[in-house]
């Protein structure tokens, strides 16, 4: 299944890429592909911006504005004027953070 087109913030710097393949391994939607021992974006619209590739790239060749694609989290962010947060937490400090029930 593919979500909205042309919204994703994923970028690959092919000059930095060493071809280790770590990003290919962690991506749950096969967004990236190896070409000439370097990674390129194969299916941009399949990216869900989870950030796994960027966090596991040892040379900083992949970047993405990572976050969770959750409307309840965005609404909570709006209500609290903070970054999106779904409010799913055991932490008593954050108990009031979630005004809209999250889903995780």
């Amino acid at each position: 299944m593919i979500y909205l087109k042309n919204v994703v913030t994923l970028e690959v710097d092919r000059d930095k890429c060493t071809g280790c393949g770590m990003c290919l391994e962690v991506c749950p939607h096969a967004v990236l592909a190896m070409e000439d021992r370097r990674v390129r974006i194969r299916n941009r619209d399949a990216c869900m911006e989870c950030g796994a590739c960027a966090r596991n790239c040892p040379v900083g060749a992949v970047s993405v504005e990572a976050g969770v694609g959750c409307a309840a989290a965005v609404i909570n962010g709006l209500l609290n004027r903070q970054a999106p947060s779904c409010g799913c937490s055991l932490d008593p400090k954050n108990a009031s953070a979630g005004k809209v029930g999250g889903c995780c």
Binding site: Y3, M48, G67, G69, C70, V100, C103
Partner: peptide, 14 residues
């Protein structure tokens, strides 16, 4: 709201 439970939606898209 089901975007949060889905497995393929991005924050930019939402």
């Amino acid at each position: 709201n089901f975007t949060g439970a889905s497995t393929y939606t991005s924050l930019s898209g939402v």
